[in-house]
């Protein structure tokens, strides 16, 4: 005598198989067995070659044909002094004022006499004067 639970469970009909399922499985198998397409392979090879050529060209251009990445400066990089043309400073006084660069006493003295001509200043960019 079977338990009632078994009889109840038997009332679940399972799942019907969709029409054409077996054919779709066989199609998938056939697709797996097909050799890789030569055309696609060649296309991939050509794309790789083109990318490699482009990289080489860019590298060559950057090494020989491009403008310098940096414009060399006249001052000493990291140096402690800069050579300044007083006339240029005077002509750009307003700009310098905007940037509040004229609080330096030495610069103020210089601008009192614009006819002084070119005057070489040693303007320390860093305060290196320290009392020992």
């Amino acid at each position: 005598m079977t338990e009632w639970l078994d009889d109840v469970l038997d009332q679940h009909p399972g799942a019907p198989v969709p029409e054409g399922f077996a054919e779709r499985v066989m199609d998938a198998v056939a697709e797996e067995q097909a050799p890789p397409k030569a055309r696609g392979h060649l296309l991939r090879l050509a794309s790789f070659a083109a990318a490699a050529a482009l990289l080489l060209a860019v590298g060559f251009w950057m090494g020989h044909g491009a403008d310098p990445m940096r414009t060399p400066t006249n001052g000493n990089v990291g140096g402690e002094t800069a050579e300044l043309d007083v006339t240029e400073l005077y002509n750009n006084r307003e700009l310098l004022e905007d940037f509040e660069l004229l609080s330096d006493a030495e610069l103020e003295l210089v601008f009192q006499d614009e006819s002084a001509g070119t005057f070489m200043l040693d303007v320390p960019l860093e305060d290196t004067t320290e009392e020992d």
Binding site: H12, G14, A15, P16, V17, F21, A22, V25, M26
Partner: peptide, 17 residues
């Protein structure tokens, strides 16, 4: 192909349950 035909119903029903 015969294998698929024979056992597809069992596979479907098992998965569904």
């Amino acid at each position: 192909a015969e294998l698929v035909e024979e056992y597809q119903s069992a596979a479907f029903s098992m998965l569904r349950r």
